[in-house]
Design a protein around this nucleic acid. Structure first.
Lengths: 223, 223
DNA sequence: TAGTATTGGTTCAACATTGGATCAGATTAA
DNA sequence: TTAATCTGATCCAATGTTGAACCAATACTA
């Protein structure tokens, strides 16, 4: 088992706070109770709560307790924290909403140089010989499609999704679902997307991207 | 020449890092574990990790572990900061992508209680007498549609959009575009959406929401 | 008001984990 | 052979966790 338990506990506490726990009186349980709940020594909980105190999430008073500082549940930070717990199924549903649209935008709006960058990422991914290398250029391919869709907000949403997918449970999932056969299928599907983009055909790009994401979903979620 | 296993291992490690592995807490496995995984002596792994340390990919701390230094350029904080500068046009484009889909999901998945909450927000908005009051319940109406679409990630994306739209430049824009006439139009359009939801008709809900957002876009951007 | 319980603050010793360092011997390629 | 590398091993130093004890500030109760 990994060390740095205090870090993990701090993360859990932050999530629970931003999820609205202890909001009624703004008071956290005593350190001794938390230690019992997490099954660790009180020292460890103290260190974790110390982290929260450092970044201002919490204030401590001897004899009184530990209190949340004003927490706005609508704050961007809280929203993002909740996003980090997104399930693969929910994520795939939204990808299938956004990425085909991004591909269509790209077919309409991208410059020739940007489309060449997309094609380049596709070609490198096809030539990749191991899983990490392919994984990297596959992600880069999708990223470059968003990069040339000419909607900055859409691009940033994709950045957010990519960051979330880079977290460990997702990484394990991708690794499990990888195979040489699937890699070839992905390359073919990417090729179809690239072709549609270069033909400047939004409708085909949209459909090709959707078809590709359906494949990814099947492989990832086993449906 | 000898084998240079260390170089190979360094290459593999770099690839795995750039593919996003260990990104969630930025911590690599202990050298002893890596040695076991690669089937080599710990000394060899040490040399490999030493290369990564030399070119700054990684930092090592005795007693703690080895940590990635590559501060993710797509860190969530940076992404969100860029999002705050989103233009109204980009935002409207994405709303027209997401909200009709959310309405369709809601028509399919929402409980009766949730749909009643949507209708309630609509009715209060219609009865509102001043602009801030209407504005609040209008936002609440859209929020409740997302709240019952049964996709937590989509819900959080909407929270993000709402937070951004609550910033001052947006507020000014909304105030300028407000009029009694437009308020009535919005109410009618909301009614159409509510009707479609209560009929459990995803396709109609989708279209009604899209039509409504087209109206909002015209009013907001003057197109 | 006085006493007791609760709660955060502090310190300490023991142990486990992890990177740092070194060395003798085996392996491999020139 | 020779030089570089890898192996296997041992010990060291820094850090984190545990479990415990005691202190200080606050809250509660008789």
């Amino acid at each position: 088992m990994p060390k740095l338990v205090a870090n993990d506990i701090a993360t859990v506490l932050k999530k629970r706070i931003s999820a609205g726990e202890w909001l009624q009186d703004g008071r956290m349980p005593p350190e001794r109770d938390l230690a019992a709940e997490f099954g660790v020594a009180r020292n460890t909980v103290r260190r974790a709560v110390g982290f929260l105190e450092e970044d201002g999430t919490v204030v401590r008073h001897v004899g009184r307790g530990t209190f949340l500082t004003a927490t706005n549940p609508d704050s961007i930070a809280a929203t993002v924290t909740r996003m980090e717990g997104t399930s693969p199924a929910d994520m795939m549903e939204i990808r299938q909403l956004l990425e085909p649209a991004a591909a269509a935008f790209a077919a309409t709006n991208a410059s020739m140089a940007e489309l060449n960058a997309v094609r380049e990422a596709h070609q490198i991914a096809c030539a990749a010989e191991d899983m990490p290398d392919f994984e990297h250029w596959d992600a880069e391919f999708h990223h470059r499609v968003f990069a040339c869709c000419r909607n900055d907000f859409l691009k940033e949403i994709h950045n957010l999704m990519r960051t979330i997918r880079n977290q460990s449970p997702w990484f394990e999932m991708k690794k499990r679902s990888f195979s040489e056969e699937r890699r070839r299928v992905y390359c073919d599907e990417h090729q179809t997307i690239v072709d549609a983009l270069l033909r400047r055909d939004p409708e085909s790009a949209n459909q090709a991207m959707l078809a590709h994401l359906k494949t990814v979903e099947r492989n990832l979620l086993g449906r």
